[in-house]
Design a protein around this nucleic acid. Structure first.
Lengths: 211, 211, 211, 211
DNA sequence: GATGAATGAGCATTCATTCAT
DNA sequence: CATGAATGAATGCTCATTCAT
């Protein structure tokens, strides 16, 4: 946080760079040592700076964690949006959404692990559940939008959309979490394939079954 | 606390009663305030006693948490086993396993929430993942056993079992977690029904799709 | 401490017996586990009773320790007095005093170790040095009395008594403490013999040297 | 505290200064209030800082006490070595060793008192006797070396060296401890003189008596 | 008499936070 | 900008003490 000197463009640039570095280090620390061990000194130590630096750039630990959360969320969102946006049909969009989720987790294991660590701390500070629910709501809405688009276009004629997004998001997360906890026993590639196949079934289904 | 003299019936009863109460209060605290906030004084405060009482009945906080975990695990396991054991066919067993999971979470919201809080804090103490993975492994093994039994009997002729248990467990947990975070938006009953339908599809499928 | 019932002879007898047992166990605990570890529960555990019993017989831990100290002191005093009293000449009295000190320590290692542990805790409670100094003063006075008696009788004609008791007591304790800390390396028998020889030298000396 | 970056001269200076101050205050506290009362807050209070400062400079209380012990030991050793090293003959070396011990105690009353407090608490932590015995062994070995050197040179022709070091060290400590407990009644100067005279007697003795 | 139960003060320790330099 | 220094609240834990039964 700038204090008394007037902000120049350069300073802001350096500042932003430092903030990025600290956020990244925080993520790294949370992912590798767990949220519980991720004290300010642990993060600072990993970043090669002193604790004071973190306090200088973030007014509290709470704020740092908020930024970490926001950063990861934006990252995931960007990654997925890009993949989905380039897809021609709702059906492909949905499959790419799911696909992208798995790919993101596989490529950014640390970030995803930190993400899971963080949102499970349901009540951070005083207000309940400041992150967890929000992000899930966004995810489901995202899926719902795709699904509704598909239904409007007539691609998924008789599909019952109610809570379907919860189901899809649940499959993705439920599998990825198991993989995070147990990368040796859980074959994430096979799981991803199977989730996509399930999706195929849903989408190709006559309304009879999954109504 | 008790020492080496043989316990009288009354003393043991009171002692066990207190232990139960404290474990329950700990679960309540973890579920509602998060593991991080669940300090000994927070738990003691909720229980209406001083924190010394907790130290009196449990030799460390670690032990209390271990008991909480063991208690919930045994509870879930018992609940599900009973439901599965009474099922005549592998197919029903599987559906009842899933069904029971949902029912347990719905009836024991706090316990399930505490459970999720606990195993997500992957690194409790020094060694990584003392609880989390273990329980997932057990869940998947449980499902695998049912699936293999069904295949041996010829019920699921061409089903590819590889990682299927991960998928099933993932669906269940992924959905329940969303419901825990957002009970208003997530309709757990509808979700449960849809998961069971998906299961039906899996089991009735010719090997063509979900091989 | 008796409370409301009138004290009967029998009760007093039992009470005294219990007190003895608890004091002995306290000594045992202090000697074997160190004063620091000798908590009320440690002592109670060793005695096979609950903490409450100790509180019943001693109004505080402070009092228990005081009794322990007094008990050991009385014991040592009795042991030594008996040996000294039976000696015909001041010279033999002195040698028997020293001799008895060594013998007491060798026969009652626990008691002596507890004694050393205790008086080193110089400031127990608020008032400084309630035990340590007192006992040393008594020891020196005891020696001084013997020495003066001998001088009066003409046995040690030109001996300078000033601080001699401190020296004698110092030799005895200084050696015994080393033996307590290191029974393998310190040969207490040889040391005792050498201390007695030194005493002989003192007593047979013309005033020229040790004036 | 310092991390891994190379320390600047100033920082190290201030840091070392504080460490010294805290060690000195710890010694003062142990000497005057006893080890048992020397809690971190007691030490911090005496030093005029909050107890957090101690944790900042020493990673645990155990470490602080270890430093205190090492510091005193090194101090005593240095003081005595210097005095002994400058002595031409074994006989003078021995007398200067004893002399230096008294002088050190007299000039550094607190340090010596803390030293006695510390090594008498035989069981610090779990393992028995981490300091006490070690230092006595070193003292005796030191004396033994001087004695053997003298005997080799022919200065102490028929002296029996067995356990003599224990006796000499015992006299010194035994007297000093009494003086620490009772500085008014114990005249340390007279005692020192008498111990040195005893030494003289030992060394000048024909083998007849103290063989 | 004795016990189990409960308390509360005190302990060492961790850690986010503040601040002068 | 960054650091080292210091703080103080909170945590888990121990333990002497009290008390109803």
């Amino acid at each position: 946080m700038r204090r008394k000197t007037e902000p120049t463009r350069k300073a802001t640039f350096i500042e932003e760079h430092r903030r990025r570095q600290l956020i990244d280090t925080a993520i790294e620390t949370i992912a590798n040592e767990g949220l519980h061990q991720a004290s300010l000194s642990a993060i600072a130590g990993r970043a090669g700076v002193t604790k004071g630096v973190i306090s200088y750039y973030f007014k509290s630990k709470h704020e740092l964690v908020e930024r970490v959360m926001a950063d990861i969320l934006a990252d995931i969102r960007g990654f997925i949006s890009e993949r989905v946006a380039g897809s021609p049909t709702p059906s492909l969009k949905l499959k790419n959404y799911v696909s992208a989720f798995f790919d993101y987790a596989m490529v950014n294991r640390d970030r995803y692990a930190a993400f899971v660590e963080l949102w499970t701390v349901i009540a951070w500070g005083s207000n309940k559940n400041p992150f967890g629910s929000v992000s899930y709501v966004q995810c489901r809405n995202y899926i719902d939008t795709i699904l509704r688009e598909g239904q409007k276009k007539g691609d998924f004629p008789q599909l019952d959309l109610n809570q379907l997004s919860t189901l899809i998001q649940g499959m993705v997360d439920g599998v990825i979490i198991q993989w995070l906890l147990d990368p040796e026993l859980v074959n994430i590639d096979v799981c991803k394939k199977k989730v996509l196949e399930t999706l195929d079934i849903y989408l190709s289904l006559s309304g009879a079954c999954l109504k």
